[in-house]
Structures are given as structure tokens and as C-alpha cells.
Amino acid sequence: MGLYSYLLISIIIFTIGVYGIITQRSGIKILMCIELLLNSANLNLVAFSSYNGNSTGQVFALFSIAIAAAEAAIGFAILVALFRLRDTINLDNINILRW
């Protein structure tokens, strides 16, 4: 399969992720969508790596996976802490800071 098929999938997943971030209300779902985005980028990197014939992309992806995991941990920690205070993770309600 050509490079562009992978890119296509990556972009589709990316778009779905973006769509999710915009539409979803649950904090957890939004975090999942962010994972989708990072994942699509990883897919890109790996696809390019294979296409370009060097492994830099894979190295990059490796870093990226590690970082994504860490990020997820932080994100969920924040969500849990917030839930403890506010009793909700519905982001529509988390808007004391505005204007």
C-alpha cells in the first residue's frame, strides 16, 4: 500500500479526534479524543519512516508514545482532582473562569 493510504487513515482518525474534542462534553471522552490525535500523528511518523527509509520517525514515535502516556496520566489526574471538588466532569459545567 502506498504512503498516501496511511496518511489518509491518519487524517481520518485525526479528524474524528478533532470532531470529538469539539462535540463531546465528558472530560474523559475528550481525553480519549486527544489520544486519538496523538495516535494519528504516530501513524504518520511511522508511515513516513517506512517510506523515507530511515528510522528517525520510529524513534520520534517512540518518544511520542511515551509522552502521550504521561500526558494521559496527568490529564486524568487533573480530572479526578476536579471531580473531587466539583462532583462533575462534564466540561459544560466547568466554566467558572470565563470572560
Binding site: 474534542i21 469539539i22 470565563r98
Partner: peptide, 17 residues
């Protein structure tokens, strides 16, 4: 304009996009 800053994070994301 400041009303744009709704405080709802999804809107922020939309604007970013």
C-alpha cells in the same frame, strides 16, 4: 469579544481549530 471566552473548553478547542 470577551463573550467569546465562554469558559467552555470545547468552544476553545473549536476556535483553535
Amino acid at each position: 469579544i470577551r463573550k467569546l471566552q465562554t469558559g467552555v473548553v470545547q468552544n476553545y478547542a473549536s476556535i483553535t481549530i
